[in-house]
């Protein structure tokens, strides 16, 4: 059992961020890459809430509000782009979406 200290919360935040980053790097499906981006966003919110709780401040909690809103807007736009891309190219695999390469 690990005691819920500030360090433990930060460690979870870092691990979750690292898992999300790993997913962004190794996965080939645009949709799954997008899900892993969401994981990274959520990981940052854990750190903010933990800092707020242990230092007795309110600012971190309010920032989580903003992160949630921005994430919602980001997902809406991102998924619209993915759907538009799929309509044009009939694929969601990143190795086939290399028009801008070179």
């Amino acid at each position: 059992m690990i005691a819920p200290t500030l360090n433990a919360y930060l460690a979870i935040s870092v691990l979750l961020f690292a898992i999300g980053l790993l997913g962004v790097l190794i996965r080939r499906n645009v949709l799954v890459i997008f899900m892993c981006l969401e994981l990274m966003l959520v990981a940052s919110t854990i750190a903010l809430v933990a800092y707020s709780r242990f230092n007795g401040t309110m600012d971190g909690n309010v920032f989580v509000f903003f992160i949630l809103t921005v994430a919602a807007a980001e997902v809406a736009v991102g998924l619209a782009i993915i759907v538009a891309l799929f309509r044009k190219r009939q694929t969601t695999a990143v190795q086939d979406l290399n028009t801008l390469k070179n």
Binding site: R27, R28, N29, L31, V32, F34, M35, E38, V42, L68, A71, A72, V75, A76, L79, I82, V83, F86, T92, A93
Partner: peptide
């Protein structure tokens, strides 16, 4: 927001695009 809206949206798009598994 996340579980209710965002993941539902993701599932919606995954099924709409019929995204196959990764190579």
């Amino acid at each position: 927001v996340y579980a209710g809206a965002i993941v539902a949206l993701f599932l919606f798009i995954v099924m709409l695009l019929d995204a196959k598994g990764d190579v």
